[in-house]
Simulated scan of single mutants.
Amino acid sequence: MRVDYVVRAIAELLNDGELVYVGLNSGPAILGAFMARDLMKKDIDIVGVAEAFNPKSITLSPSTGDPFFLEGSPVMITVDSFDLAQKGELDVMFLGPAQIDEETNVNLTAIGDYERPKVKLPGGAATAYLMPLVKKMILWNLKHSKRSFVKRVDFVTGSARLSRNSVYVVSDMAVMRYDRSERRWKVIGLYPWSTLDEVKERTEFGVEEENPRVISITEEEKRFIEKLDPYELRSALELP
């Protein structure tokens, strides 16, 4: 599955010593975090909305907030994770916005006019609070197009524009890093099926390359993902 490559790309962005927070409905993010910790043997701690600290293992379910995460794991309530963010001690957080723009603004609220939206989105929960605080924000979107990667989001649910943190995007076409000094997105990773020109064509704002490498995945890594997702729930994220 192509989404397996996205999981692999997410795992690569995690580093030793990081405290990683995974939110709701974040299948690729939780799979990537566990791949980084358990297969790549990176020294990371995983917390999230299921309120468990470093769950021993998972079986992917429709919600990453499923309480089965608590089995055999210490409890770490959400408010404590948010307190760590306020203190500058939360290293990584994932978000899956419907829209991302050239200034790191994200939209999880509504498409179109807020008063009469074309699409009402789930909402941002603590997005506005957390985005400027975490040290590394990893955004993921599996429908890389000009409708998702826009010049300006329809509604600013949250933003890292005024922060100094690191911001990355992992999509089904590329991995990108936000360069604060140049205020531009840089393509740092591509997949076997994508090219820089295609990424540019599917992005409403300008992007530049930064020695992008082709992301690969091994058979061992595929088997690892399949073990955590035996019901192939991630297949629902696959595009035609």
Rank of each mutant, 00 (worst) to 15 (best):
P55K: 04
E115I: 14
N165V: 10
T64W: 04
V169T: 08
M176L: 15
P132V: 03
F68G: 09
K42M: 07
L142W: 02
K200A: 12
A98P: 08
L39R: 09
W185I: 01
R152T: 11
G88A: 09
E12K: 14
K87V: 08
V75I: 14
T109I: 13
A29K: 05
I111G: 07
V156P: 02
T104E: 01
I225F: 12
K135S: 10
A174Y: 07
L233E: 08
R202Y: 07
A110D: 01
N15Q: 15
S61W: 11
S181W: 05
L233D: 01
N165H: 12
I217N: 03
L70H: 09
T218H: 02
A236E: 10
I44T: 08
V207F: 01
G158C: 06
P212K: 02
G48I: 04
P67S: 11
F224H: 01
V170H: 05
S145M: 02
G123L: 08
L121G: 08
G72I: 10
Q86C: 09
K227D: 11
L190W: 06
L31R: 04
S171L: 05
E219A: 05
P67R: 12
S26L: 01
V106C: 00
S216W: 06
D66N: 15
I30C: 05
E89V: 10
T64I: 05
E51L: 07
T109Y: 13
E198M: 14
F155C: 07
D4V: 12
D113S: 13
T157D: 02
A236D: 10
G23Y: 00
G88R: 05
D4P: 08
R116Q: 13
E115C: 08
D45H: 13
I30Y: 10
R177E: 15
I217Y: 02
D229N: 05
E201R: 15
G72M: 05
I100C: 01
E198L: 12
R234Q: 10
I30K: 06
A125I: 07
P74F: 09
R116V: 09
S145R: 13
R164I: 09
D229R: 08
D43P: 06
L239C: 11
I58E: 01
P97C: 00
Y168S: 03
P240A: 10
F82A: 01
F82V: 10
L139A: 02
E208Y: 09
E219P: 05
A98S: 14
M176K: 04
R161Q: 14
K222V: 08
L70A: 14
L13F: 06
F68I: 13
P117G: 03
I100P: 04
M76R: 09
Y168E: 07
T203H: 07
S159F: 03
N211M: 09
P132Q: 05
G32A: 10
K200V: 11
S163G: 13
G123K: 06
P192C: 10
S73C: 12
